[in-house]
């Protein structure tokens, strides 16, 4: 069996569900984790955009506001929290376009800041991709697949 070293060696998963018309932007610098969420969300019918640094994410959001953005904190250029801060400073409308922080940081400072911004703070390691999908569905008011057995 050929050794899998890069995510791109895997066959691209196809969409298992029909498109649901929602766009999600994922800002994550770890390629494996980004790929993981992309696969899960695409299979659920979401239109997914991947960005691997904060500045790109910020510009993409400004150019084309997604229905939901999932931001890592530790990223090059700008952290996820800085992105949200900048968007708030620009008067971005978060009611139409939700944001979630998806991180592995346990820093209380980060948690407090996210809370003050009014965004959910999720710890990646504690959730499976399925859990994350369920949270996103709930946030956007969509029903998702049945709970796992």
């Amino acid at each position: 069996m050929p050794r899998i070293t890069q995510p791109s060696d895997l066959p691209q998963p196809g969409a298992a569900l029909p498109p649901n018309g929602k766009t999600v932007l994922i800002a994550e610098d770890d390629p494996f984790i980004a790929r993981m969420y992309e696969a899960k969300l695409k299979a659920a019918g979401y239109n997914v955009t991947l960005k691997n640094n904060g500045r790109d994410a910020y510009q993409a959001v400004k150019a084309a506001p997604p229905d939901l953005m999932m931001l890592d904190i530790s990223m090059p250029e700008m952290t996820g929290l800085e992105v949200i801060g900048a968007l708030r400073g620009d008067g971005y409308d978060f009611s139409a376009s939700a944001a979630m922080i998806l991180t592995n940081s346990s820093s209380e400072q980060h948690q407090q800041l996210a809370k003050s911004y009014g965004v959910d703070y999720l710890i990646k390691a504690e959730l499976t991709p399925r859990d994350v999908l369920e949270r996103i569905n709930a946030k956007l008011g969509l029903s998702g697949p049945e709970p796992a057995a």
């Binding site: 984790i33 969420y37 696969a39 390691a125 499976t128």
Partner: peptide
Amino acid sequence: LSMASHQLRTPLTTIKGYLSMMAEGDV
């Protein structure tokens, strides 16, 4: 400790993520 926990969690996220997706029949 903050840094260490962050670093330890990152590969675990990957392991957990892909294993769960496989177990769920995604691939």
